[in-house]
Design a protein around this nucleic acid. Sequence first.
DNA 1: CGGCAACATGTTATGGGTAACATGTTATGC
DNA 2: GCATAACATGTTACCCATAACATGTTGCCG
Lengths: 346, 346
Amino acid sequence: MPTIRDVAKQAGVAPMTVSRVINNSGYVSEDTRTRVEEAISRLGYVPNMLGPSLRFNQTNTLALVLTDITNPFWTTVARGVEDAAQEAGYSVILCNTDESEAKQDQYLTMLLKRRIDGILLVPSTSTSNVVQTIKNQGVKVVVLDREVNDTEVDVVEGDSVGGAYQLTRYLIELGHQHIAILSGPQNVSTSSQRVAGFCRAIEEANLSHNTANIYWGEFSQTLGHEMVRRALQSTPRPTAFLAVNNFIANGALQALREMNIRVPEDVSVVSFDDIPVSINPMPFLTVAAQPAYEMGYQATQLLVARLVNAGPETVQKIILPVEILIRQSSGEPPQGPGNESWNTVS
Amino acid sequence: MPTIRDVAKQAGVAPMTVSRVINNSGYVSEDTRTRVEEAISRLGYVPNMLGPSLRFNQTNTLALVLTDITNPFWTTVARGVEDAAQEAGYSVILCNTDESEAKQDQYLTMLLKRRIDGILLVPSTSTSNVVQTIKNQGVKVVVLDREVNDTEVDVVEGDSVGGAYQLTRYLIELGHQHIAILSGPQNVSTSSQRVAGFCRAIEEANLSHNTANIYWGEFSQTLGHEMVRRALQSTPRPTAFLAVNNFIANGALQALREMNIRVPEDVSVVSFDDIPVSINPMPFLTVAAQPAYEMGYQATQLLVARLVNAGPETVQKIILPVEILIRQSSGEPPQGPGNESWNTVS
DNA sequence: CGGCAACATGTTATGGGTAACATGTTATGC
DNA sequence: GCATAACATGTTACCCATAACATGTTGCCG
């Protein structure tokens, strides 16, 4: 593999002159430039970024640390990140933590060893001090989707409280009196904030505010499935479910189907996170859609701004609005006991 | 940011001794080890990989160059890549080419400058010489999903010919006589191979083998939509469509819905690529499902093997079997002219 | 025509870790 | 008790590109 010295020798100049040609910096005569360019293409020379990276401690690399790229929400976020990074001249290293703090820490130390310039972090819990650890190493961070305690850090997230509030109000206006929320882990801000939005709507409507209607679980299909089964055994039985993310919603739908409970005739299901129509051309779920691409894109732009010491001076907390999309999974609650034929089925 | 020299000074040893402690190599006395470890944690020292990377020209980084991470098929592949890479101690840089050769080339030169160790490449066309260019720079490549001309290179792909053949046979056995294939670009091997499998099944069944039933387009919803509309204007009108990927299938379904053509009563639609049930809990399409995760995982394992000069000695061409999943989007063709009420609708 | 700006090219030092080599010490075997 | 192995630590050189500085040349203005 040829180096800048090989090119220099070929062209009969000093390495520095080759560098000037490559980077279009300083003065180079037309004649020299041509000779150098010829040498470059003859040798098939490709500059080695590692040299300057080591020297100036700048890798032009970002990391995107998220829970699972397989979830279409994160996929879309990732695409936004990648596009913004690419435009700014950065590469993106992808890391899936699967919500595990251990995996997250493992990735993080690896990333620090690589001297990446910045991290877009979806923290696996809100309670850890990851962010501080990263910042101590002089690496810039923007937190995505979730808030963390204690630390002054830029955050870009969807409007969890507002989204949950709106979804719940919508269900209440349809006439639902018994609504259960199927949530994720208690120590993840999106979970707790969506529960908070839910509670606010419930209280405002003077509905029986029963903590028994709050189910804490995981952002997974399995837990969605399980939580619905548990919820259906409570009295009064819920006539509507608010799933806190798409995986939970799917688990819920699956459980309901298994029990021959019709959606939306028997129960309504609403959820956070939309699936792009390119993936699901016949969307069924009523959802609070977060602007996933925008989240990734804006967070990355903010991070890049921090890296070049531009951007706003104060710590940013950007809350992007969600959009309520009403579809077929929600409707009025069943009237009277006659319609509850499915009671016996489960 | 402290360096190994700072740690060495703190611990009163030479940098080399610190290095030995960190890498658990060579002899270090228990006493010295303790002192060094204390110094490391006191200073919060994190080794800088860039040094050795530069020295030994080894970055422990792979690149995954694909068309669009937003497509669940590629998402799943990416997850397989990431998992295998992580296990082997490599990081993955993600690049979306959007099927554009220009974008691909742009990413590729950037990756070469970074001196990544290997590339998992989904080439945007089968006809270019990208692979040769990469190999000339001493970077190992494994090609994913698509074949390239001219070059000796490892490939991991799904069984396109077989999958298309099986899907077509299935349609023929249902009684369909007029089947159209909605394909991608002609210069992408998955497109052409799936058309080839389709043709073989058609010829074997002695059906009228009409090139008019082959539609070349793009792997996009838009083109799927367009190709269906065109196909429905031909005579004899097709009663079944084979979409060559999931985006095309979605576009097709959308077009049919707009024209009030029922699936599968009026026409059948089958497709390549399955959507994970975690995303779509109520799958509708009959598909040839490729083992996307396995593709990514195996390709990465092969690439890693090449990097450590292990693995098979000959160039590998690994063709993974596809699985035909019969669902609700396919059925027998409508009987007689009476059922073709939708003729007038369009 | 002297002096300064603009042009053109070159030299040196730097960044961080570690392979390869060198040196010294302690234990082991005969 | 001496040679040798095992243990323990240190020194030097290297990877590659480029900022900072140095040197030399040409052209232009007064």
